[in-house]
Amino acid sequence: MTRRIVLALAGAVVLAMVAVGYGVFTTAREHTPVAAANALSLAPGPRIMFRSTAPDSKGHLALVAADEPGGPRSVSALTCLRVYAAGGTGTCLRQDGALTTFQIAVLDKNLNVVKAIPLVGVPNRTRVSSDGRLVAWTVFVAGDSYNHGRFSTRAGLIDLKTEDMVDSLEFLSVTLDGHPYTAPDLNFWGITFTADDNRFYATMSTAGRRYLVEGDIAAKAVHTIAKNVECPSLSPDGKRIAFKSAIDGNPSKGWRLTVLDLATGTRTPLAETRSVDDQPAWLTPDTIGYALPHGTADADIWTVPANGTGTPRLLIPHAESPAALN
């Protein structure tokens, strides 16, 4: 099968993207209270893990009490571009030492790095299955022959129990609207896992359109189930997907946070009307968390009810990439 011609990423370009898009450079704004970082762990509890964007802990993996999200944060020594955790497994998308390359560091419950997987591209999204067995990532890449120098996406996953890895979802069989489909411009991003350690959802784009796909790891296949769905996040009960929906189907107009009922296909726009360019996270069965940037070097985590009611609420200042440790 003909696949893309991938050019090497220039180190200077990659570092520039990190500096601008992930907040390497910043101007101090205010002090954020920091708690003692003793015995940090991913054990279940009413806490939220996130990437700090505060001036005194910028880029560090941090945790805060769910009932006092604006209070003191426990900050680890790990610096990351994105983080996530579930089932006692954590992920940290990060630069590979002093190199201009990147990796996904897999963390145990005590935040020790137990596996580091090289990533060909700039990290963008990560997720972990509810039992901690499956880990996923999305990266930006440059140089695809069809894309005229613009950036594309790659998404992959690994089963930590079997060590089986899917380097890129592009190598899976694709069914679009009930028919087998191949194309050189397939892009995938924003994986989210079901509870059975086999199925997942993700975004696929081709021919200028974006689709929600359901994937089967054992069958090495994906099929489309809905249109205009980006960065899906499956609810704890497995019945709903929170996602960002391009306004009028056009990402240049921004995105609206929305929840899709998988059984009925009903879409519920959420009360957050600002454009959210993030993969939302379910902080509770009824609450969605997401990051909103201010400037290019800082962000805050906000929440909004998952049923379309209420109003957005600031949850954690100077933070992004939330994951609830329930």
Rank of each mutant, 00 (worst) to 15 (best):
A43Q: 13
A62D: 07
L61W: 07
F50H: 09
A39N: 15
M17G: 13
G45K: 04
G23K: 03
Y22F: 12
K58V: 11
R51D: 05
E68C: 03
S41A: 11
R29E: 15
L42F: 13
V20D: 08
T26H: 14
M17E: 12
V18Q: 15
M49C: 06
L42G: 06
R51F: 06
K58C: 08
G70Y: 07
E30V: 12
V64K: 02
P55H: 14
V64I: 14
A66C: 05
A65I: 01
A28M: 11
T32D: 11
A37L: 04
P55G: 12
A62H: 07
G70R: 10
D56H: 10
R29L: 14
Y22H: 10
D67R: 03
P69L: 01
H31K: 09
V34Q: 08
P55Q: 13
A19Y: 02
G45M: 02
S41N: 13
G59A: 13
G21I: 09
S52G: 08
M49D: 02
M49T: 06
N38F: 01
F50P: 04
D67C: 04
V18W: 13
S41L: 04
D56F: 08
I48S: 00
L42K: 09
A54M: 08
A65E: 06
R51V: 11
T26M: 12
F50R: 02
